[in-house]
């Protein structure tokens, strides 16, 4: 799931993207696949060079905040199987 601004940028209807990820399903592999499919999202979720998550972007799944998990940690089984979404969220901040 993508936040509204990135949905518009990638010209997605409802913000939900279904992807086939090769190898272990992690934050990094999901974002690699997402950016390969939608290159205009590069740099908007994580830094171009360091690949660090932007400060006001969060990652949620299965009602947990996974933002501080290592990028190569496996994601919950429900995300792998596609029953739960991996949510990229714009933090509530700013004006």
């Amino acid at each position: 799931m993508l936040p509204a601004h990135l949905r518009m940028l990638a010209r997605l209807g409802n913000g939900e993207v279904t992807m086939q990820v090769d190898g272990p399903v992690t934050q990094r592999s999901i974002l690699d696949a997402l950016e390969a499919q939608y290159p205009m999202l590069r740099g908007t979720i994580r830094d171009h060079v360091t690949k660090q998550r932007r400060p006001f972007v969060r990652f949620f799944a299965c009602e947990e905040d996974l933002s501080h998990e290592p990028p190569d940690a496996p994601l919950p089984e429900a995300v792998l199987s596609g029953t739960e979404p991996f949510m990229i969220v714009g933090a509530m901040a700013g004006g």
Partner: peptide, 19 residues
């Protein structure tokens, strides 16, 4: 502040845009 920097370009005077 959330999603960083983008550059948009239009080739039709602002009717349509491409990142």
């Amino acid at each position: 502040g959330w999603f960083g920097q983008l550059i948009q370009r239009s080739d039709d005077g602002g009717a349509t845009w491409e990142p």
